[in-house]
């Protein structure tokens, strides 16, 4: 099994996510520069957080046209597992691999803090190590994390259990006051209909070792790996 961490100009969480995959989970992991157009050898593709292309125009809008993204779309259609974290999530929506868009946080601020997430769907390859409705503690760090989609898309997301994470309080209660950025229905992460592409604003790689205070993020990264091992 091999994992690819895509590196765009301006990615800055590429090393953070490389380390849990490579060192903690012991997976053969490569950094892949965005000019690469062949990802045939990889089973997992990670789009890391950061500020690809300086967030010019819109977050993720320019990265979407990097040579590697054409190949990411091709591999996504083949069912290869793809996880986009923060800026990676923004790139996935811009590429239309996931519906909706990430708008500016309603309070206009860049928010960097640890939040609680409730696992809304633990029946995915990214969350099967979590219990149903489990509350995870994972940090966010973004200025544009306000998930938005039209009413019709929201209905579809709900009907197909595509909402994977929601912002909640420490007891798992979903309320407007635990919504850090204004996301519609407290959405923090969604999955595509086929179940192989996940986008999330929180950073599981920043909570993937006890040294970092918590290892909740490892449940997500580890879920992907464990599913492979079992298969």
């Amino acid at each position: 099994m091999k994992a690819a961490v895509i590196v765009f100009p301006g990615s800055n969480c590429d090393h953070d996510v490389y380390i849990p995959f490579k060192k903690t989970l012991n997976i053969d992991t490569d950094f892949i520069w965005h000019k690469t157009a062949d990802l045939r050898n990889y089973d997992i593709i990670v789009l890391p957080g950061g500020f690809s292309y300086g967030d010019y125009l819109r977050c993720g809008a320019i990265a979407r046209f990097s040579p590697v993204m054409k190949e990411v779309v091709t591999q996504a259609k083949k069912g290869i597992k793809i996880i986009g974290i923060c800026n990676g999530f923004q790139i996935l929506t811009e590429s239309q691999l996931l519906p909706g868009v990430l708008l500016k946080n309603t309070n206009q601020k860049f928010i960097c803090k640890t939040v609680h997430l409730r696992v809304e769907n633990n029946n995915t390859i990214f969350t099967h190590k979590c219990n149903a409705q489990e509350v995870l503690k994972i940090p966010i760090a973004h200025g544009e994390g306000n998930y938005y989609c039209d009413a019709e898309t929201l209905e579809e997301l709900k009907n197909h259990q595509q909402i994977v994470f929601r912002y909640c309080d420490s007891g798992g209660r979903i309320a407007p006051e635990c919504n850090p950025n204004g996301s519609i229905e407290n959405i923090a992460g969604i999955i595509n209909r086929s179940g192989n592409v996940l986008g999330m604003m929180p950073h599981p790689e920043r909570r993937s070792d006890r040294i970092l205070g918590h290892a909740d993020g490892l449940k997500i990264l580890g879920s992907i790996i464990e599913r492979f091992v079992r298969n």
């Binding site: 125009l57 819109r58 809008a61 320019i62 046209f65 929506t93 811009e94 519906p99 909706g100 868009v101 708008l103 938005y148 989609c149 039209d150």
Partner: peptide
């Protein structure tokens, strides 16, 4: 394609 995102 690029300058505007039709979702928003």
């Amino acid at each position: 394609k690029l300058l505007a995102n039709p979702v928003m």
